[in-house]
């Protein structure tokens, strides 16, 4: 409080904080409360205790599918994103790499384009009959490698989940590369020089020096991309046309459908489940990465 002033900081902070209270904090409290009610938006909400949670766990197979798909999404995309982004950042940092800036620009490009547009364009590329991918595979006779041709890249099959994971990584990779580039440029030269005395090659310098040194950024990237995969909606909605399918539904598409069907209490319940999962995953990752940092040092 170095600046002595007559006007309180509240004069500046009141309105912005009010926006957060009104549109985030209070709706969260009301949403958690609503998860214990049955409500279609019209009449008075009907208190039913934990009935929504029971229904979610016991009587909603589509919720279980979408939960499974969301978790697969996270487990598949987070490690791939982290490793690929780190490796790319190291390559783009190397003095001998040709075309750094151009490659960085290209790799970052998908991140600035709306996910909806990206899903749309990929849908065309992956179209089973006239899409670029299948036509390309046919032109090199690779279609014989697949039992069911044409492969329904976006139909209701595990393929579709894999395809969407791929596009998700494809879109977010550039952002993580840029984060790692920033982290790598803050690693002090002396660390490498010290290792250089021991004759470490660039492979060892990468994994023994750079990788541990950017651990705080790894923590950030892991948490951010985990949250992204829990929040995935746009991509799935556009790539599947919003179809309700066991292999393509994720928590948010299921939630949206319940909302659109005016089952508001049940939608709130799914929201609370997402909140719980987010909290558990974030805390677990913080603990795990902090713990392993201490063990390493």
């Amino acid at each position: 409080m170095s600046v002595r002033s007559s006007t309180s900081g509240w004069a500046f902070a009141a309105f912005p904080l009010a926006v957060i209270v009104v549109f985030t904090a209070l709706p969260t409290v009301a949403g958690v409360a609503l998860s214990f009610f049955e409500w279609t938006g019209g009449n008075r909400p009907n208190f039913i205790g934990i009935e929504n949670y029971r229904a979610a766990i016991l009587h909603d197979p589509q919720l279980i599918h979408s939960l499974r798909n969301t978790l697969i999404f996270g487990v598949a995309t987070v490690p791939i994103t982290v490793i690929l982004a780190f490796v790319l950042a190291v390559a783009l940092k190397a003095e001998w790499f040709v075309g750094k800036t151009t490659v960085r620009t290209i790799i970052f490009l998908p991140f600035v384009i709306s996910i909806v547009a990206i899903g749309f364009v990929w849908r065309w590329v992956l179209d089973p009959h006239s899409g670029l991918l299948n036509m390309g595979l046919e032109s090199i006779a690779a279609d014989r490698m697949f039992a069911d041709w044409p492969v329904p890249w976006l139909g209701d099959s595990p393929w579709a989940l894999g395809t969407m994971c791929f596009v998700h990584v494809w879109r977010n990779l550039g952002f993580c590369v840029v984060l790692y580039l920033a982290a790598l440029s803050r690693v002090p030269r002396s660390l490498y020089d010290a290792a250089g005395v021991d004759g470490a090659g660039s492979w060892q310098a990468t994994w023994r020096i750079a990788w541990p040194a950017v651990r705080p950024m790894t923590l950030f990237v892991v948490i951010t991309s985990s949250i992204w995969s829990l929040q995935v909606f746009d991509l799935v909605w556009v790539m599947t046309g919003g179809a309700e399918q066991p292999w393509t539904d994720v928590l948010n598409t299921h939630l949206y459908r319940e909302f659109a069907a005016n089952r508001l209490g049940y939608a709130a319940t799914i929201g609370v489940l997402v909140l719980i999962i987010t909290a558990v995953i974030t805390v677990a990752q913080l603990r795990w990465l902090r713990g392993s940092t201490e063990a390493a040092s």
Partner: peptide
């Protein structure tokens, strides 16, 4: 305020909509 940053939109969009 920092705690509200952790909240996923899935849990507050409903009442934000009603509001």
């Amino acid at each position: 305020m920092l705690l509200t940053m952790m909240l996923p939109y899935q849990v507050y969009f409903l009442f934000a909509y009603i509001l």
